[in-house]
Design a protein around this nucleic acid. Structure first.
Lengths: 132, 132
DNA sequence: GTACTGATTCGAGAACTGTCAACCTAGACA
DNA sequence: TGTCTAGGTTGACAGTTCTCGAATCAGTAC
């Protein structure tokens, strides 16, 4: 914990009791579970790099074989991570002949971005909608 | 995988080979590890609700006792989750007398929000800086 | 100093996650 | 059809995470 004299608004005091009223409806357990699943998918370095690899691609999509080449991991492991990303709605894919291509889902990323944006109501009263 | 005729830009074909060149530098392994740690902290429903509870507070800060009351979890468990959030730089805290108060770190949330924003270079070429 | 309250740390156990080897499926091609 | 290649699935295992009870620390009140 930081002991520096940080500016924390409207400090409660021991004399006045510890708690002040809520102003907004916080995230519901259901909404939290949905969101947590998505953030959990982002909570792995390999998956973040996969997502970044796809996002950095000019055409917007990447073949699985190239993703596999970019990591010191086996095919099944990459496949596992791609499945996690797909399950979270962060990427989608399509088979074209022999190869399978992946691309990111911008709407999903935008939703998460908005949720985290401290200048929007987002995190304080998030309604999980149209996110995949 | 979806088999609907989704519009994916610049499709590669089996005839022309599967891979097209990268345009940008993707997320580095080091940067990915740092970011993954933060997203992992968000990847739990309890922690998301705690974060939301704090963010929904008018004064911007919440006493630990109130967070504990809001969940069907023991004190040690809440304390564990708060430590995770603190370790990720998403919240900070301060003791005042008997009680300990937590508040969110807007700059950290803003950084994550920017990273995920599909309209910014963010995820395709993210430089982890000034994030806590 | 002693007792009390609030919060954190420690240790243990159950559940989950990440990884690989082996195997299976889908599509291309002769 | 048979063979080859790309990618996905399954099962097993090690490591990590989440949760709790017990113990400990920090501050207040008597």
């Amino acid at each position: 914990m930081s002991n520096q004299p940080r500016v924390a608004p409207s400090p409660g005091t021991a004399a006045s009791g510890c708690c002040t009223p809520l102003v907004g409806e916080a995230l519901t357990p259901r909404g939290a579970a949905d969101l947590a699943r998505t953030f959990k998918a982002l909570g792995d370095p390999v998956r973040l790099r996969v997502l970044s690899l796809i996002a950095a691609r000019n055409g917007g999509e990447v073949c699985v074989c190239e993703i596999t080449d970019a990591f010191d991991l086996t095919g099944p492991t990459i496949s596992y991570h791609l499945k996690q990303l797909r399950g979270a709605g962060l990427v989608d894919c399509q088979r074209r002949g022999t190869w399978v291509y992946y691309w990111i889902v911008p709407a999903k990323l935008a939703g998460l971005s908005q949720f985290l944006d401290p200048t929007s109501p987002g995190i304080a009263s998030f309604e999980p909608a149209a996110q995949g």
